[in-house]
Write a protein that binds this DNA or RNA. Structure first.
Lengths: 220, 220, 220, 220
DNA sequence: CATGAATGAGCTTTCATTCAT
DNA sequence: CATGAATGAAAGCTCATTCAT
């Protein structure tokens, strides 16, 4: 904003340091907020966790709200980055791509279960603009699922009258692994969870003639 | 201590007034907490909303935590009361009972959309005992769905390898109408939502031979 | 004040009941205040302890300050009543009367150790008038000691240049059994305490020629 | 963590400022608590008296209890520092050392009469650990008296069968100048008080053969 | 007489934010 | 850039006192 993005090496170094600081603060904040909830985390506590002074946080973030927003955005961003890669690795087949997307989603969420819950718990504390940002990001996040569904329908593999609904259902079921982990962990591992949810949804949307071809995904 | 509690009319009147006060406070608290989140609601604000003094709240509830727990329990209780009635009215057929249970769930949630979100947002603020209570209530809440699924499997109508999973999925999709209302309201009404989600799940669990018999539920 | 002290039996009964109530409240208050300190005791707690309603306390006492004053006065009164009786039973000899007075004081205090400490702890909470009342009562309380000392001096048994000082010292040493009980209880029983303190003071005030006559009181 | 704490001049300056703040707060709190009793003093009042904000008190003290404990400990510490110095200045003779110790005690107490009463009034408000700390300090405080008595006994000057008792009696009589000041101030100055109490106790414990040698201390 | 629901001022404590260094 | 001492508004909660019943 203030200076042109020059090739000044000092400038680059400065930016790198700033980036590093920002990450450091964000990680500290995320760690605490996931564990205790944003309201129970003080700026003093974030500073202590990050090993810096309180004042420094205000050089990088506008305030507590801003920090919370950045934490949530960071979480969603990391989700949005990891899933597409897994989809690409799954080949061309839409069914396998859908399966890969869902599995990847669940795995990413499993890795940061508390972070996933954070988005549900804390979004209310944001202002209207922040909430809008989060919603938009969430929709983006579900895009790989939606795309795979669209491809499957186009290829005559899926009979899904409402693609958006099905995509969001899958997103929700992935979130549910975090949201209702206390319930599901009683009876199943992540792997079983993914397999069974996939089987359920595929039975619902695979055109009958394709069931045999994807039998291994429908098995339970 | 002094007399049989059920016979003394003055005692009964007192209990009735206390009950009324309790409800009044609970409703005021629920109203504010649903709107702003429990952390953003002060006891002063609850008192003002209920038209009483702060001190009075502490005659009826142990403190803010206790009040929040009571609000959430109240919400879940009202869910647990309304759904079974709808199921009974749906007749004997497990498929129709399942459909009625899900529809009723969604309707109840639609009526108190913000209250439904409370569970997701605020449970973290409770102590361990409170959280356990909420979880137990939520599982109870899903019992009508689970029962209908069990009956359907026993009657040879459903092919659902994991009944608990399917029941919880339905519970989640009902909750989703509140959780993701900002998304779904773009494209559909409650009625369409219920119909489409039901169609999706039924396609997944109905044994192939029964599809024709329940065509109207699978239509979209 | 308002009605002449008639012989109306209904009036007498009323007074008796009032007296009883007052004692009941005072005892409840004393019990709690001695244990927890007057600031930590609420009127609600006193009411509960006495088994009556809060409102009733205000029929018998002007408020919390008044109640506290009454409690302390009650304690001092009970001290002031019990000691003189013990002195009378000790015969005519001033030395034995002094010994009896001190011993009695210590015994009375031992019975209500916490009550004795109360006067030191809580007098500050009283208003000026209350404090003056307490001080006056305390001086009255020490009168038996002072009188015995005077008699002893008149009889040529004591060489005590400042009778008031000696009397107050004895009073203080009796109080000390309560005030510093945590210290004295390590090394001695009440009986030893009384004996040793008496021996100490008597050695200080007995005229040398009388030492042999009271050897048993000076022994240790 | 970052550097040797004793070498960094900035660190030293910081510590000095912190020390100053701490003293400032302690003095303000002591002033108010001595006057009104700790319960009647609010943290707001302490802050106002010290000319700082409420929040700052909590940087230096854990809370109100901690502050009260610090105030009392401060008082006892100042007693424990001043008395031994006076004893040293009194020479080698145990009788004179005892007299100096008692006199010094009374003088120190006279200077901070209200502070001395604090221990009796407010110790109840402390937790178990705090009370234990105070008791230990009080016993330490009386050590100079006890030592002089021991020395006197060893030198054949005193006939004191229970040294601990005599030492604590002297401590109590010093405290009494504060506790019962309203009584003693009627008839005597601090100097007379000290002289008379000393004469009394010395008559009680000096072996008869030494009375002439210390006649000036026994005079009245 | 007796009750106890109701009040609300006032308490202790926390913490987002600022700013002199 | 970075610090952290200082602020003070606002929170949850208590309890002496009142008064309609």
């Amino acid at each position: 904003m203030t200076s042109a993005p020059t090739r000044d090496p000092a400038d680059a170094a400065k930016r790198a340091r700033a980036e590093h600081r920002s990450t450091q603060l964000l990680e500290a904040a995320a760690r605490l907020m996931e564990r205790d909830g944003s309201h129970a985390v003080s700026m003093q506590a974030v500073a202590a966790e990050a090993g810096v002074s309180v004042g420094l946080i205000y050089r990088y973030f506008g305030g507590k709200d801003d920090l919370l927003l950045a934490v949530i955005v960071g979480v969603l961003d990391s989700f949005a980055t990891q899933v597409p890669a897994a989809v690409e690795a799954a080949g061309e087949d839409p069914v396998h791509r859908l399966a890969a997307a869902f599995r990847s989603f669940c795995e990413v969420i499993d890795e940061r279960r508390h972070a996933a819950v954070l988005t549900y718990r804390e979004t209310k504390s944001l202002d209207e603009a922040g909430r809008a940002r989060i919603m938009e990001l969430e929709v983006q996040t579900s895009e790989p699922l939606r795309q795979a569904l669209r491809d499957g329908v186009d290829a005559g593999l899926f009979d899904a009258p409402d693609i958006d609904l099905a995509a969001y259902d899958l997103l929700l079921l992935a979130h549910a692994w975090a949201l209702k982990h206390w319930y599901f962990e009683r009876s199943q591992s992540l792997d079983t969870y993914v397999q069974r949810q996939l089987a359920l949804i595929l039975k619902a949307i695979l055109v009958p003639g394709q069931r045999k071809a994807y039998a291994e995904l429908l098995a339970h």
